[in-house]
Amino acid sequence: MLTFTLTKALPGDPVLSMVGERAQPEVVEKIRREIGADKNVTEQYLGYVGLLLKGEFGRSYYTNRKVFDDLVAKFPNTFKLALGAMAIALPVGLFFGFISAIRKDTLTDRIISTVSVTGLSVPVFWSGLLIMYLFSLQLKLLPPSGTGDIRFLILPALTLSLPALATLSRITRTAILEVCGMPFITTARAKGISESKIRFIHMLKNALIPVVTVIGLDFASYLNGAVLTETIFGWDGIGRFTMEGIIKRDYPVIMGCVISGTVIFVLINLLVDIIYHYLDPRIRIR
């Protein structure tokens, strides 16, 4: 809400960018009245807070549709994309981290570590373009952009999964290495339990706790990454909606996206805390 007050105070007139610099003054005035830009900042702010309390974000300057309705309509697409990315990142990241940890300090470990630190460093909007160039423009396997069935989903989901995959694999590696030194692993070995059983049951299960946090945090990076990835692949979700809002200086849209994104993020973190409790009964929710 603080953000919004200031948004209103900034230079750059949305009305002018809407109708163009050479529009007739009467037209400008009329639109200004319609979107309420003729009132002073305090009134606008109070109006906006009132809307928020009613669970609304106001109307887009351009389409005059309720921002909230558009957000609700576009949310499933972003959710699908995030799920798709998760479906790639989770198994691959866990697998990489696991292999990397049990083959510690070997060539395999080094290659995986290098790949994951690279994954963290490559901007998604660039890797997305590279992936699009390779798979759509050169190999012509999948459509380069658009919203639709699974064929449209694969490339953006792949792009979005890369940084998450990298973080997951790094955290899994650290977590497993930490568990390795625990007394109960030595006990298990002393009891003659097979090494593979120790690895999969004792180590992996206990290493999952920090991993769950990261999955939660990854959802945040999905929200961040979605703005960039959806823009590139023309995926009709909240991310692209944000970007369009930015380009058109459509403040109700931008604010709606930022605020709802934050709310979703906080809710996910809450969910992670609850899951935590079930995974590790030692952690108590206060």
């Binding site: 953000t3 200031l6 945040a220 703005v227 944000t242 930022v258 934050t262 906080v266």
Partner: peptide, 17 residues
């Protein structure tokens, strides 16, 4: 830290010139 960082940064960049 409870804000998604890029969204927060976007929010701030549209406020200021």
């Amino acid at each position: 830290l409870s804000f998604p960082s890029l969204l927060l940064a976007i929010g701030i960049s549209i406020i200021l010139p």
